[in-house]
Design a protein around this nucleic acid. Structure first.
Lengths: 129, 129
DNA sequence: TTCCGTGCAAAACGTTTGCACATAT
DNA sequence: ATATGTGCAAACGTTTTGCACGGAA
């Protein structure tokens, strides 16, 4: 794989971000230092970095993908109102799950636990409404 | 809320479907008996039925929404390759999860467990590749 | 009669892709 | 020199929306 300034910058931005930015957010941040980069390049590099395991794709439900330079195993807590995602230390969560090996012709390979909640900001604006 | 033939038909189709159809799939099926229905109407009614709690929106990550007339609590197993979703009887799954009440300003209200796997068809076509 | 729901079409949105050009190797 | 990566713009698939009309109440 060829080294490029764009890829380096995208990775740098991701490593400085702790808020699991979307592709557009990465794009906006990278444009700060590299105004002529294109959104397509951001997508292509995020895709590439994901398959290399350098960043993680966070498949939180809802529309857009989010990305995380922290590829260590941890949980994500999502505010169901604004979509904000925060990390949860695995040490603070205990999980004991058992499931069948196969259901209805689908072999089970694993499971994903997602925490849901509401952030302070959204709780506050809820009381306004 | 006003009764309409369209909403009744959409609900009927969903109740006859066990494959968690996407909005387009619902659209296609409803068109069988109601060819002039519009996709917009399908979306508007699915949205409406969801907020009434008559059907459930299955938020499988990233891709398109799926809908389920079975609103009882059960798990979903998704084939990570083709996106197919099958139901998993809660009796076949044991879950014991503990998590903090709040993390980083986000109050935790619950969690969601999603099973992931690969269906026979995809496993078979994988060996072709 | 009155609105709510519909059909239609266009827009919005996140993402992918085709192309010609640039550039790392 | 070569092939991989880029910028740009168009295409894509899903979902939402504006509008005038139709039909349930």
């Amino acid at each position: 794989m060829r080294q490029t300034a764009q890829r380096r910058e995208i990775l740098r931005v991701l490593r400085c971000s702790r808020d699991h930015p979307t592709a557009s957010e990465v794009y906006a941040r990278v444009r700060g230092s590299m105004p002529r980069i294109s959104l397509g390049t951001v997508y292509r590099n995020l895709e590439r970095l994901c398959s290399l395991g350098e960043v993680a794709r966070i498949e939180v439900s809802g529309r857009e993908m989010r990305f995380d330079a922290d590829t260590s195993s941890h949980y994500h807590l999502r505010c169901v109102e604004c979509g904000r995602v925060v990390d949860v230390d695995p040490a603070d969560v205990s999980v004991d799950v058992h499931y069948p090996e196969e259901v209805d012709g689908v072999r089970v390979t694993g499971c994903r636990l997602q925490l849901l909640g509401r952030c302070r900001r959204c709780l506050a604006s809820d009381s306004d409404v």
